[in-house]
Amino acid sequence: MEIKIDDLSGSEIAEFLEEHIREMKSVSPPESKHALDLAGLRKPQITFWTIWDSSCLIGCGAMKELDASHAEIKSMRTTTSYRGKGVASMLLQHILNEAKLRGYRRISLETGSMPFFEPARNLYAKYGFKNCAPFSKYKEAPNSVFMTKDL
């Protein structure tokens, strides 16, 4: 498996992210959808990675700089056929290492509170993330769980 920075110009990642948005819409009410589309991910403060198994796109994830000491994890997703095979762990570890290299002191995320998101919450907890109050521009919401980790 190979992780690489992605410029979000390929048709494979466009389709992958469209599927991600559709899936999020199917499990989250509209007011609780925080997944970014291609335009939202093409911001200078966001670094976006894809993970490949040979020529097959199997996952993605992004890191958004909130300020000089704090970053946010965005758009973590693994294709259905690769879930449970360590792809998300590999990508999360990559993002955490990059956050440390950039000198961030904290990294946070927002995920869903519904059962669908339980595997994601368990993964983040396994890597030392703790529940926290809303950060950045987020507001308290029943369908959101906020987590953070000191680096």
Score class of each variant (00 low, 15 high):
residue 1 M to A: 11
residue 1 M to D: 07
residue 2 E to V: 11
residue 2 E to D: 06
residue 3 I to A: 07
residue 3 I to D: 09
residue 3 I to T: 07
residue 3 I to S: 07
residue 3 I to W: 10
residue 4 K to G: 00
residue 4 K to E: 06
residue 6 D to T: 00
residue 7 D to L: 04
residue 8 L to Y: 12
residue 12 E to N: 14
residue 12 E to H: 06
residue 14 A to Q: 10
residue 16 F to R: 13
residue 16 F to I: 09
residue 19 E to I: 14
residue 20 H to E: 08
residue 21 I to G: 05
residue 21 I to K: 15
residue 24 M to C: 00
residue 24 M to F: 05
residue 24 M to A: 14
residue 25 K to Y: 02
residue 26 S to Q: 08
residue 27 V to L: 10
residue 29 P to I: 06
residue 33 K to C: 14
residue 34 H to Y: 15
residue 36 L to R: 13
residue 36 L to Q: 12
residue 38 L to C: 02
residue 39 A to Q: 15
residue 40 G to A: 09
residue 40 G to Q: 08
residue 41 L to F: 10
residue 43 K to S: 09
residue 43 K to T: 10
residue 44 P to G: 00
residue 44 P to K: 13
residue 44 P to H: 10
residue 45 Q to L: 03
residue 46 I to Y: 13
residue 47 T to W: 05
residue 48 F to V: 05
residue 52 W to I: 00
residue 53 D to T: 02
residue 54 S to V: 01
residue 56 C to S: 10
residue 56 C to W: 04
residue 57 L to D: 12
residue 58 I to H: 08
residue 59 G to A: 11
residue 60 C to D: 00
residue 60 C to Q: 04
residue 60 C to V: 02
residue 62 A to N: 05
residue 66 L to V: 09
residue 66 L to S: 01
residue 67 D to P: 08
residue 68 A to L: 11
residue 71 A to I: 01
residue 71 A to W: 01
residue 73 I to Y: 02
residue 75 S to L: 05
residue 75 S to W: 06
residue 75 S to Y: 07
residue 76 M to S: 01
residue 76 M to K: 05
residue 79 T to K: 15
residue 81 S to T: 08
residue 83 R to M: 04
residue 83 R to Y: 09
residue 84 G to I: 01
residue 85 K to D: 01
residue 85 K to N: 06
residue 86 G to E: 08
residue 87 V to E: 08
residue 87 V to W: 09
residue 87 V to C: 05
residue 89 S to D: 12
residue 89 S to N: 11
residue 91 L to G: 03
residue 93 Q to H: 06
residue 94 H to T: 02
residue 95 I to Q: 05
residue 95 I to P: 08
residue 98 E to I: 00
residue 100 K to D: 08
residue 100 K to F: 04
residue 101 L to D: 11
residue 103 G to H: 11
residue 103 G to F: 14
residue 104 Y to D: 06
residue 104 Y to H: 15
residue 105 R to C: 05
residue 105 R to L: 14
residue 106 R to L: 02
residue 106 R to Y: 03
residue 107 I to T: 14
residue 109 L to D: 07
residue 110 E to A: 08
residue 112 G to E: 12
residue 113 S to K: 09
residue 115 P to M: 08
residue 117 F to C: 09
residue 119 P to M: 07
residue 121 R to N: 04
residue 122 N to C: 13
residue 123 L to H: 13
residue 123 L to A: 11
residue 125 A to W: 04
residue 125 A to D: 05
residue 126 K to T: 13
residue 130 K to F: 06
residue 131 N to F: 04
residue 131 N to Q: 14
residue 131 N to S: 10
residue 133 A to N: 15
residue 134 P to Y: 03
residue 134 P to R: 02
residue 135 F to L: 05
residue 135 F to Q: 04
residue 135 F to A: 02
residue 137 K to M: 01
residue 139 K to R: 14
residue 139 K to M: 03
residue 140 E to V: 09
residue 142 P to H: 12
residue 142 P to K: 14
residue 145 V to G: 08
residue 145 V to S: 04
residue 145 V to W: 02
residue 146 F to L: 06
residue 147 M to N: 07
residue 147 M to E: 01
residue 148 T to I: 01
residue 148 T to R: 14
residue 149 K to F: 03
residue 149 K to I: 00
residue 151 L to P: 01
